[in-house]
Amino acid sequence: MFLRSLSIGFLCIVLQFNVSAQTQPIDLFADSTTTTTQDIVTGIFKSTRIVNGQSIENAGAGVLDFRILHRFGAINQGGYNFFGLDQATMRIGLDYGITKKLMIGIGRSTFEKQFDAFVKYRIIRQEEGARVIPFSLSYAGTAIFKSLKETTTTYTPYISDKFSFAHQFLLASKFNDYFSLQVTPTMIHYNMVDNSTIPNDFYSLGLGFRQRVSKRVNITTEYYYRFNKLDGYYNPLSVGVDIETGGHVFQLHVSNSTGMTERTFINETSGSWGKGDLRFGFNISRVFTLKKSKELKNIKW
């Protein structure tokens, strides 16, 4: 009896052996491939600027971005000035991505003959997948030098008096492919102001969003609320359309601000939406890849 059971067991071993070796091939198709370790959310905004102000986006590492910003005169000037199209101010600038996180840029505006330079650094990036971070955070710092000659002759300003600075934290989130929002707490410091009653530091909060209309067209809006303000100026509001083509992004917009540097468009917007003091403008960006990333260096295409 015991022997018989032993022999059945042995038979079982043999049977198992044969059965499993023949009819249990490893099925790779049942496996799922590619597990995501890090899934960074990209394309929160379509350009490095929402309209005038910095967006959460950086130029890629080794990418040079040549930008021309153009603002016409006020539309409500009427037909004699061809609704503002006779006048124009512009800023010409070069931005460069040093690393994936760090970007710098320089520019020159015809408005008040300003030079400006900025750094933008990614602190946190929005992520999905294994680790979820719901927002991106960057810092942008801008230095602005107003080289326009002062008309007053009573006081000769120092070079340093003509500088102003902007510090911004950019907090942005892409809700889905169609909608992104950015909140931008901003501090602007003037090295010199007109008189002692005016503070040197101004605080404001920017709000911007992107709404996708089609694959290549996005509506953008940017607004800054000023907590303390210079008299006679308005909060800037800009509404624009981003149009993407191959290597360019065109941004067309209507705004009440003329200046294109942080100091001038946030704090010194002279136009009012209520009075129809609006300006048509556009930004053109063309990118050039100057430095290839390591992954792409030794490849024969």
Partner: peptide, 11 residues
Amino acid sequence: ENQLMEDHFNE
């Protein structure tokens, strides 16, 4: 090589 191209490719 081009960041913008990569974005367009994805989006």
